[in-house]
Design a binder for these strands. Structure first.
Lengths: 205, 205
DNA sequence: CCTACCGATCGGTAGG
DNA sequence: CCTACCGATCGGTAGG
């Protein structure tokens, strides 16, 4: 298919993002702060310095925007975690690394992550199914990791795999509610701290 | 003509239940399924078998409904946990009990809990402040619990109190996303399983 | 990207 | 609790 996108009359300065990228970013912020349905296209346009109707020169509709945000978030989780599958690491170190990557994605995309966790249920059936597939694959990743740890003798042999995976997922996902990217704690700090406690337990020896 | 009215998905509102109670219940369900802003007062009225305008004979406005739901949820968390403060139990057993109560509140009010976690940021300043106060007091409760465990030698002496409290809170709060009250796992199962793993760790001895 | 506009629907009210 | 209605605002479109 030929590219029918109209060429801009002049090159934008390099530090300026493409308009679509700006829209994505501002939409993520507004959707996360006010919620998807509570954000009007006119508010979004206003923050971008344009009129409401002008948005539709760049996007096809409001739902399209939500789908984009959620899709890109899923994709980032996917890339971060699934590439770890084949890495040759002991299960405990792999867990630490997975949690770090997982938290990094959340921390680097606090807005999209919030939208992702809050609005994915309200997507159209098609997009909904894709997100459900993502959730399953991430869940599967952590279950496999736990299973491997048990098989290699690094993890307790009596673990409930499903519950252990849920325990891990809870801690990394919930970061979207409290983490402050500008704070003193880095994603590395959080991942290391959480992984240590999860691996060794709170109880004194 | 047969009655084609769709039956309510959960429990049939009991006839002797006050109207306000029914409204609260249905509103919780709709707000949790579709989101607060995406739910119209006419949909809510429809599910209750009345016309849109008739709702206002019972409530003062839509926001009032949200405030009620969030307030009652906060209250239930408060009652469940803060009464544990003065109970004389070793820290590990108290942790298990606190997690059980916490998860029980979520499990018994999946809809309100979802609304609570998703919409509290969108409340009016007054209600927002109250919820923030609740969050702080629950956070405080878990931090005190961890501190006590360290002081009495039951917990590792090198714990980061703040991080440990966040770890615990993550696991109990996140249950609102995956727990199924009709499933085979009971809140007791989840609390015991999670508490065991948190206390003893995933690592083999 | 703007102006001007569409039908639909929103939360809420008046009067019964 | 209903009927009838309000002004406001919604997402989106046409034509430039």
């Amino acid at each position: 298919m030929p590219d029918t996108t109209p060429k801009p009359k002049r090159e934008l300065p390099r530090r300026e993002q493409p308009r679509r990228e700006q829209i994505h970013e501002v939409a993520s912020r507004l959707f996360s702060e006010r919620g998807y349905h509570a954000t009007s296209m006119r508010e979004l346009a206003g923050e971008l310095g344009m009129q409401g109707g002008s948005l539709y020169a760049h996007i096809s509709g409001k739902e399209d925007l939500l789908v984009q945000i959620v899709n890109r978030a899923s994709q980032q989780f996917d890339e971060a975690l699934l590439s770890l599958r084949d890495v040759n690491l002991p299960a405990d170190e792999k867990l630490r690394e997975a949690m770090h990557r997982h938290i990094l994605v959340v921390a680097d995309n606090m807005d999209s992550a919030t939208v992702f966790f809050h609005e994915w249920k309200h997507l159209s059936p098609e997009a909904y199914t894709r997100v459900t597939g993502w959730r399953d694959s991430i869940d599967h990743f952590y279950r496999d990791l736990v299973t491997e740890g048990m098989r290699t003798g690094l993890f307790r042999p009596d673990l409930d795999v499903k519950m252990a995976a849920l325990l891990i997922l809870s801690t990394v996902n919930w970061t979207y509610t409290w983490f402050h990217p500008q704070g003193t704690l880095t994603p590395r700090d959080v991942a290391d701290g959480f992984a240590d406690m999860l691996l060794s337990g709170l109880r004194a020896r």
